[in-house]
């Protein structure tokens, strides 16, 4: 196993009296897409800004490529592409001018690669940025983060403001990064996005790391709430003894329940009746924390 690309030791940041993050120990391996999941205010942006040396740790340290985030900051930033969570761009330049500016500051401006990514995202690079919509500005932010093939791409809530179609394009661009063997560290407060894109995920709440999981393991235990609608009312107690199914409520012809893991058993049982419709909803983050990490979560809080 090669050395981690990102490694933090007891990384802690306080803002005055308020908490940023506390005692974070994290390792991100080369070539993986690493998700950083947590509700808003969990300390995701704080962690990312520490990695980029925009802010300095109160205690502990962060290493990127084995270099200290502060002492080796310049060398690190030569190899990083970054999308801030609250993206603010220069209004008076075009996207193309911005890419050229940052490309030259990074000494690795690659107009062809930049144009290719901008085209994939269907971004008009000639317009002044102040005239662009929120979604298009987010695309500008993504292009400047991905252009020039940085060894690690650090993205803070990358899909906010993107429509679903553009999100799919973004996922394809991430697949490209993965195919190159490069590394992605991305934060999100949406579980499905992490499940769609990431190899591993760290889950943070209130400034503390709750768990690091393989996404595949998380999916195997994935919990979803299902609502099954049938043509006719069902007898009370239906599905109560189906494996992996919990919290069954039968209300006339509608059944709601929670399923952990595969849904095959439930659907086999349901096929005995006249099934009309199925509605599936992902549980919210708080519910996941409570379901998976109830005890740890309470301890952290």
């Amino acid at each position: 196993m090669s050395d981690p690309v990102i490694r933090t030791h007891g990384l802690t940041k306080h803002y005055g009296k308020s908490r940023g993050i506390v005692g974070l120990d994290l390792e991100v391996d080369p070539g993986e897409i690493f998700g950083y999941l947590g509700p808003n205010g969990a300390g995701k942006t704080t962690t990312i800004r520490l990695l980029l040396d925009l802010i300095r740790p109160t205690e502990g340290r962060a290493e990127v490529f084995g270099l200290d985030s502060h002492g080796g900051g310049l060398a690190i930033r030569h190899r990083v592409g970054y999308l801030p969570g609250e993206l603010r761009l220069y209004g008076s330049v075009s996207a193309l001018e911005l890419f050229s500016y940052f490309g030259h500051l990074r000494h690795r401006f690659d107009p062809a690669d930049t144009a290719r990514i901008a085209e994939a995202l269907d971004l008009d690079t000639t317009r002044e940025i102040r005239t662009l919509s929120h979604g298009n500005r987010q695309k500008v932010g993504l292009v400047q983060a991905l252009m020039g093939r940085p060894e690690i791409v650090i993205l803070d809530e990358p899909t906010q403001g993107l429509d679903p179609f553009v999100q799919q394009t973004f996922y394809r661009l991430l697949d490209e990064v993965r195919a190159d063997g490069r590394t992605v560290f991305m934060s999100s407060h949406v579980l499905p996005e992490i499940e769609r894109t990431c190899d591993r995920v760290a889950i943070v709440r209130e400034g503390r790391l709750l768990a690091v999981e393989r996404v595949a393991d998380l999916k195997a235990r994935a919990m979803r709430r299902l609502e099954l609608r049938f043509a006719a009312p069902l007898p009370a107690g239906s599905f109560a003894d189906v494996g992996g199914v919990r919290d069954v409520v039968v209300d006339g012809s509608t059944v709601t329940c929670t399923v952990a893991g595969p849904v095959a058993a439930l659907f086999r049982a349901a096929s005995a009746f006249d099934l009309v419709d199925v509605v599936s909803s992902e549980p919210g983050l708080e519910e996941i924390f409570l379901a998976y990490y109830g005890d740890a979560g309470d301890a952290a809080a």
Partner: peptide, 13 residues
Amino acid sequence: SGTADLLLANPIR
């Protein structure tokens, strides 16, 4: 204006 984050994430002192 909030652009400092983006500017200083570049390899420039």
